[in-house]
Design a binder for these strands. Structure first.
Lengths: 196, 196
DNA sequence: CCCCCCATGTAACATGTTACATGATTGA
DNA sequence: TCAATCATGTAACATGTTACATGGGGGG
């Protein structure tokens, strides 16, 4: 039942899940319903993430209960109730704080997807200079990660089995490719100044 | 309480988690205790995965209850009880089945880590020819994934915003790098015939 | 004596998956 | 009328995270 008591206005609580943050960001770009979000994710390139209804609807309710989202109960063209979500002001604040969070080098090895998601959502809310600074930090973190992996390999020269070594090299290769991407993205953004 | 009733011998039940499979594989390589596994993961390159005790110990118990692992209760050098796990025969069977599972092209975009883990563990249990066949399939799947991404981009030429397009290109770049890795790994394995 | 490492685990809590339930509307 | 799509959600279950609890043993 939609408890209609507005929650903590400052939005201080347990930090949001990545998934919750992404929902917030997507809805900040454009109001959506649960079903609309489902369609959006389904149409995404080759299964980036397909949230199950049991994950999606409760997540939206949680965001609503925190006062970060607000649902307009609508009856779209005679249909049954459609809950069209919009971000509230505190939702927008939380979202922007997330976008501006610094890149933590230690997590870049396991969290690359989150950074990409953030980069993608940044387009409408951050200025070009901030985006470029973000990419710079991401590049540094990736560079450090690659160096760390290479040192790890060098330190265990000979002790690693062939497949383990190859698997680690896969990690190196992947992150070096990410780094190259960061550099080319920076170059592209630097020379084509589109209005945010 | 360690219920000592041996479970279903054929090991038919809910399929194992990736994490459970990895535990099974690591223990198949060499008997380990919970703490030994913790140390092993901690020493892994730059936080591949750090299982929390609340994930690790219950997982080991589940594998034991299924009859896939067996614990020798030991008192190592006067210390408190140490549970040294070994794979049982049915555990080894399940493990080998996992190693031989075909590459599913649809999942390769989100599951690359699992395939790498499998590749790494294959070294001791599969023959060189099987490993190369696995890499061949993985390469085909990656190639298909990259083509699919490129088609996706081509189909929406112009409709994608700049950052979204760049993020997708990141996916392309990453998976192409993976594909290159697969090819070089195949070449390396083909010419250096070490005994499995 | 105190601290850190060995070594196990539990409790509370949140979250996710799968599968099912419900009902309205549109088009063949 | 029948099927598909729109649109919401719940129930059962398993799993994970964080934080805490417990206790022995070795070294400074």
């Amino acid at each position: 039942m939609a408890s209609s008591h507005a929650e903590s206005p400052g939005a201080a609580g347990r930090p949001l899940t990545d998934f919750e943050q992404v929902l917030l960001g997507v809805i900040a770009d454009e109001p959506r319903s649960g079903y609309g979000l489902k369609k959006l994710f389904n149409s995404s390139p080759a299964s980036v993430y397909q949230p199950s209804p049991g994950a999606l609807y409760p997540a939206l309710r949680r965001l609503e209960e925190r006062g970060l989202l607000h649902a307009d109960k609508q009856i779209s063209s005679g249909r049954r109730t459609l809950r069209l979500y919009q971000v509230t002001e505190s939702g927008l604040t939380v979202y922007r704080e997330w976008l501006r969070q610094p890149v933590v080098p230690e997590t870049v090895g396991s969290d690359l997807g989150q950074h990409l998601m953030r980069f993608s959502l940044m387009e409408n809310y951050l200025e070009r200079a901030e985006v470029i600074a973000f990419l710079m930090d991401l590049g540094d973190a990736l560079d450090g990660f690659v160096r760390g992996m290479e040192q790890f390999v060098a330190a265990r020269q000979g002790t690693l089995r062939q497949h383990a070594l190859l698997a680690i090299e896969h990690g190196v290769v992947i992150h070096r490719a990410s780094l190259d991407w960061v550099r080319s993205a920076m170059a592209e953004l630097a020379e084509a100044p589109s209005v945010p």
